[in-house]
Design a protein around this nucleic acid. Structure first.
Lengths: 339, 339
DNA sequence: GTGAAAGCGCTAACAA
DNA sequence: TTGTTAGCGCTTTCAC
């Protein structure tokens, strides 16, 4: 078992004090006017023995960890994994390390993971919640800087950054309406998730504002299976819509599968639009018109906001419950029929 | 600024010693025959004051962190994010925490991140390397238990678990061959990545074993753009293949785009097969036959192997350079023409 | 320019 | 059944 290399090793080998070694290694040699050759000696020795700083000790001593937590529903969802990828990169660039956890869309798991996270001396937390508000009430009382991404809660005082979900749906509905559609069905995702609720608001309000007679909402989870089943159910109904709005690309895949089985041509017999704009939409049997969310922008913004919260002097802290919504835009493809 | 709650707070409030409090909080009350009511008192007080253990202190003291590093090329690749999701869940279940980093497919970044990781008192490391062998030579000398996932290096002494990439391609080539294809082109990914190299070996050996005259290898990265461009180039050639083998689903998307632009019908004018079996393959214009990698199995196996390495007594440690290859299997769809 | 020593929160010998 | 104390590796105040 080889000896663990610490600053003490270096101090001994160079006949210098721990203080001096620490100062050199932390780049404050100048500040303490340490002799250039002393500094050089330390650096060389550190290199020679392969010194690696012990972050746990640093963290304990400084009560600062340069660790940021990222809590999300599932990395297997491309939207979330893109968020993860983006914040990861930005935070590492800024000298932070990311502790990630994936609760597999499970609310209880999420609660446990949050507790685990909180004991990790985090400097800040980014979270995409599953939708269970009460998991986060404790977080408000802790002074941990936190930002919610994409999904959030109306009356929990947290900063958040998300796409303008309401506006996204209004845009899509507008597009369908302009193309002559009056019977538009909607297949939604998780009911208690804010992004879904806002999208549904957008749908309902559009229906109301335009005085449309037809309205239909099916579904309860952001999965292909759900999209498939719900479309099957929808197509059994007496009155069929002329267009289907899928509230995510996962749902969309299921919708398309059901339409295919029922031999309904897109867009001739059924127009279809979705939210997410996944790369593969271009390559589907019929390329699907979709709303593109500015995922990377959202992620970067959230990460920067968090760093602001962390690094800002206490008295200039940004007010809590800041809400930032970014605009989305439609990517036009060929799944909407002009009637 | 509210006071930080430590075991000392609890000790003071209950008039007990740090030791007793620590023992109760760590569940070793029984072992030390601590009075039931003492234990109860401690637990209640801990709960009342909202005690959260300080992991940095624990880590420093025990020289064990229950933190596992996960270093990967990019979370925006669905294959890798599924790996991340899976190992994340398993490791959290087992009481570990995951420090993740995404090097954005950048070799230099990867090297830096590895250094950062190593200073985080990790108990083990899971890595999907970008392909730069020399980034990991230092790792061999450190005693950190490590497992390579999916990609690995021939002569670096590490455990790894991956799909049988060679076998995957041989299966696909066999399928094409049986269906009468003799001119099969291959669009590959990153040249220096082991998984790609093995797939190419599978391709070349098949060509040789069957004495095929035609052979063509294009491409140099696992992206849609590359798949697109390389297919465009391929289709310029005098001699066209009857089938294209895309070494990943990202590449596949580009291949399909190029074929569509050139108005070549799949499979009538060109058969296409791929590796990865993404969910959306079912929903493409022509569903594509693909090899499914056992991603979740690989991930779980890798994580368990790592835990074995970590938790095993030193003398029973599994020998290094263990290589585990899992079988893949073909998912038949409708992109292969019987000639 | 450099060093001695205290202490971050926690655990585990050793003591009682 | 409970307590005292040393020390994990590091930074920083204070001293020289």
């Amino acid at each position: 078992m080889e000896k663990i290399v610490t600053i003490k090793t270096i101090a001994n080998n160079t006949n210098l004090s721990l203080t001096t070694v620490s100062r050199v290694l932390n780049g404050s040699a100048e500040k303490y006017r340490i002799a250039a050759k002393t500094a050089k000696l330390v650096l060389e020795e550190a290199n020679r023995v392969g010194y690696i700083p012990n972050m746990a000790a640093k963290t304990l001593r400084l009560n600062k960890s340069r660790t940021i937590g990222l809590l999300l529903p599932s990395l297997s969802n491309p939207f979330f994994s893109l968020v993860a990828s983006t914040v990861n990169q930005l935070l590492y660039t800024r000298g932070y390390v990311v502790l990630m956890s994936d609760c597999n869309n499970d609310k209880d798991e999420e609660k446990k993971l949050l507790r685990t996270m909180l004991s990790q001396n985090l400097m800040g937390l980014l979270v995409i919640p599953t939708g269970e508000k009460k998991n986060f009430v404790d977080l408000t009382s802790s002074r941990l800087p936190s930002i919610f991404i994409d999904r959030y809660f109306k009356d929990v005082a947290f900063n958040h950054v998300a796409t303008d979900h309401y506006g996204s749906v209004q845009q899509l509905m507008g597009l369908l309406y302009e193309n002559g559609h009056r019977e538009i069905a909607c297949i939604q995702g998780d009911l208690n998730v804010m992004s879904n609720m806002l999208r549904i608001d957008g749908y309902k309000n559009f229906i109301k504002d335009q005085n449309l007679e037809y309205s239909y909402i099916g579904g309860s989870s952001f999965t292909s299976e759900e999209g498939y089943i719900e479309t099957k159910i929808l197509l059994q109904k007496q009155e069929r819509p002329t267009a289907i709005l899928a509230l995510s690309d996962t749902i969309l895949l299921g919708v398309l599968k059901a339409l295919k089985e029922e031999k309904l041509q897109v867009p001739d017999q059924m127009s279809v639009v979705s939210i997410d704009n996944s790369e593969y939409l271009d390559y589907l049997e019929v390329p699907i018109t979709s709303v593109s969310q500015p995922v990377r922008q959202i992620s970067n913004l959230a990460a920067k906001l968090l760093l602001g919260l962390i690094e800002a002097p206490v008295d200039t802290k940004i007010q809590d419950n800041h809400s930032i919504l970014l605009e989305s835009h439609i990517i036009h493809r060929s799944s909407v029929l002009k009637r």
